[in-house]
Amino acid sequence: MGIISRGFSGRRSAADAKLPPGQYLTTDFPVLSAGPTPHIPLDQWEFVIDDGTDILRRWNWKSFRDLPTETFTVDVHCVTRWSKLGTFWEGVSLDTILADVKTDASYAMARSYGDYTTNLPLKDLMNNQAWIAFRFDNKDLAPEHGGPARLLVPHLYLWKSAKWVRGVTLMHKDKPGFWESLGYHIYGDPWREQRYSGDE
């Protein structure tokens, strides 16, 4: 399958980096986790789009990897205040994943192996803004960073980029996920510093 490259602008130094408010620059890649790291054999991995009742699309690892992929370079911002710039990934665009899905839903709940969840508007998964990433820095994505595949939505705080993603449930009403139900912001825009519920 073809690979599309987009957005590579080279690595920037701390001096010329523009960071969202309240963030500091890091060059390593901290590992945050709310539970044990799942190790999912590829022959058991699957990714499912559902509407809460019915399965709309399902991929196993082979059919997922047959989808067209993209490489992309993005900045990521963790709500615990570190930002990492110029990270290089390969993945499948959610535009590709959702291309044949007919829905009038407005929201999505990403679901992970290990039972993590995070919610976001469906429009934030579309228009070249989100990917299911499976390679980082030209290597298979390590389990501690969400491998074999994680959601990546770099324009929102990184808790929205669910590690070990196993599916997306389309919803008509927004519903808080794991952290959003415990004081974190329902949307999580780092440039507006939407860390906690109540932040504008």
Binding site: P30, V31, L32, S33, A34, G35, P36, V79, T80, W159, W179, L182, G183, Y184
Partner: peptide, 19 residues
């Protein structure tokens, strides 16, 4: 089992790992 390297503190059952 307590996970502290996260946006909050998460404690899980030592037997079944549920939160």
């Amino acid at each position: 089992h307590v996970y502290m390297q996260a946006p909050g503190i998460v404690a899980r059952c030592a037997v079944c790992e549920h939160v």
